[in-house]
């Protein structure tokens, strides 16, 4: 199964949960750290990077001898990534390019080819039977989603995978949850957490992704709005993790309280698998 761990809000404990869940799995598993702006699962897991691979995006380049300066590419590009002035050859701004391929496909002279520019790296590390693949966006590169898509091409559907997603609900989030079978949304029992989780849930509904939630840092109080939302939408609650100062301190040192949560997360993972099977059965 491919299980993505996501949260609309930052700082809900997404990496803590995905990493600990990965350590609790008995058997082979690949953890994809797709929080490419700030990947830190590997740091928590204390695994040394073994190899680094450059990941690139395809961008247009011009074959000067074929170009007749017609400027069609510039008028087609919806991302304003091509400058053209009459009688001159076009100028490409790869930093604005979405790699959509429109200019290459539609150039009447077939004068535009592709070149690959590095947009980030993929680092491989191991810890026991766990493989950790970390995506890292090159600093200054604003487009995280293409890099995430490229990294997730490495997913092996026949095996067990966990994806640690980027926060938010925009393109990088969508890129990370798209290949997943099931999404675990991590939320907090606060109006902030609920609001952001609702937005994430809305996106997952559009994408028709089955999901369940984990409520992290719970305290002894009743949050009616959250409960109402869960009941109304019939959302599966996979687990509740009580707030603990000890855990917060442990994480602040960059350490995972693995043993303490091993059973809890094994159970959450199991529940997620069951919920996935059930929902898949219902949709067939």
């Amino acid at each position: 199964m491919i299980c993505a761990v996501a949260s609309g809000k930052g700082g809900t404990g997404k990496t803590f949960i995905s990493s600990t869940m990965a350590t609790a799995w008995k058997g082979e598993l690949t953890l994809f750290d797709c929080d490419v702006e700030e990947p830190n699962a590997r740091l928590f897991l204390k695994a040394e990077t073994e190899s680094v691979e450059e990941i690139g995006s395809e961008h247009p380049y011009l074959s000067d001898s074929h170009c007749n300066g017609c400027g069609r590419c510039a008028s087609l590009c919806r991302f304003n990534a091509i400058m053209h002035s009459k009688g001159k050859k076009p100028l490409f701004f790869t930093e604005l390019c979405h790699s959509c391929g429109t200019c290459m496909t539609l150039c009447p002279e077939k004068a535009i080819g592709r070149f690959v520019e590095t947009s980030g790296t993929l680092e491989t590390a191991h810890r026991g039977t766990m493989k950790i693949l970390t995506g890292r966006l090159k600093t200054g590169n604003p487009l995280a989603a293409p890099l995430i898509k490229k990294i997730l091409k490495k997913l092996d559907r026949t095996e067990e995978n966990i994806i640690d997603c980027p926060p938010g609900t925009s393109c990088p989030f969508i890129a990370a949850v798209s290949p997943a079978d099931y999404v675990i949304l991590v939320t907090e029992e606060t109006p902030f957490g609920l609001h952001d989780m609702q937005i994430a849930a809305e996106v997952l509904e559009i994408l028709r992704k089955p999901f369940g939630i984990v409520v992290n840092k719970t305290e002894n109080r009743v949050f009616h709005e959250l409960n109402d939302f869960i009941n109304k939408k019939k959302i599966e609650v996979l687990g509740r993790i009580p707030w603990s100062l000890e855990t917060a301190q442990c994480l602040s040192r960059g350490e995972l309280p693995e043993e303490k949560y091993s059973d809890t997360f094994a159970e959450i993972h199991l529940k997620a698998r069951e919920d996935f099977q059930r929902k898949r059965g219902a949709s067939l």
Binding site: H98, C100, G101, I174, S178, I206
Partner: peptide, 25 residues
Amino acid sequence: CAFDAIQIENGNITIKSPLCEGCAL
């Protein structure tokens, strides 16, 4: 489509709005 925004659902072509980046290809 470079963004996998065009999918086939029940035999019909559908465009997934959140995935579409608007390139117009």
